[in-house]
């Protein structure tokens, strides 16, 4: 769902940039103050992994492909939505400048969708579901699914405001495609979190205490 420059007028892109920069500043503050130094390897490896995963377009039928976003993954495993904003912002900058994947004037919008919305939706869905279901895989799966779907719907609204898509048609198509992509995102996120938790339990801090006996 990387928006290209051609899809949003420059003035609207500028507004998204300003909003995005506020969150990027908060994410930088998170990296400086909240993120512990021991987590540096995990944060950097996640960036490499998310970049690679995003380059892999998987077929989702209906003549459409999709790749993972990774916002929920970063937010859940590092215990903060700002972790997702920090990592996704830098990955999106590399993609836009080096590979033309996502535009420059619209980079703010892409940061808002995948980093900010993806991170917050992923993180708080996970927190909420953990409280209710007490199941790590179930909570992670739905958090990642929503963190793929909601940013896509936000993107459709932005496309409507930009005059690029009609509202309903855009919402329906973006919603259907990303509801399917989100299922893949859910499974992969569960698998990656399981792998990292097994390899380095000390690096994982989901902020949720493991329930007794689980």
């Amino acid at each position: 769902m990387h928006i290209p420059d051609a899809f949003i007028p420059i003035w609207q892109g500028a507004i998204y940039w300003i909003i995005a920069l506020v969150f990027v500043a908060l994410a930088l503050r998170w990296a400086r103050n909240e993120m512990s130094e021991e987590k540096l390897p995990l944060v950097a490896v996640l960036a490499a992994g998310i970049f690679a995963l995003q380059s892999f377009n998987l077929p989702v039928s209906m003549g459409t492909s999709g790749h993972l976003v990774g916002g929920a993954l970063a937010a859940i495993i590092l215990g903060s939505p700002f972790a997702a904003i920090f990592i996704l912002t830098l990955v999106l900058i590399v993609q836009a400048i080096l590979f033309g994947d996502g535009g420059i004037t619209v980079l703010g919008a892409n940061i808002i969708n995948m980093g900010v919305i993806g991170g917050f939706v992923g993180f708080y869905t996970f927190r909420g579901l953990m409280g209710v279901t007490k199941s790590m895989p179930v909570s992670v799966f739905f958090a990642a699914w929503l963190a793929c779907l909601i940013p896509a719907l936000a993107c459709a609204v932005e496309m409507y405001v930009a005059g690029t898509f009609p509202l309903i048609e855009g919402l329906v198509a973006m919603g259907i495609y990303h509801a399917i992509i989100g299922i893949i995102e859910g499974f992969v996120t569960v698998a990656v979190i399981y792998l990292i938790t097994t390899a380095r339990p000390d690096l994982v801090d989901t902020g949720v205490k493991a329930p007794a006996g689980a």
């Binding site: 380059s55 377009n57 989702v60 492909s65 896509a152 198509a173």
Partner: peptide, 23 residues
């Protein structure tokens, strides 16, 4: 993952591009 992606990635448009084609 990136290496496998080069050979197996789908050439179909992504969700946003597909939606653009639909509208």
């Amino acid at each position: 993952i990136g290496g496998v992606a080069v050979f197996f990635a789908s050439g179909d448009p992504d969700g946003l591009e597909s939606t653009a084609l639909v509208v």
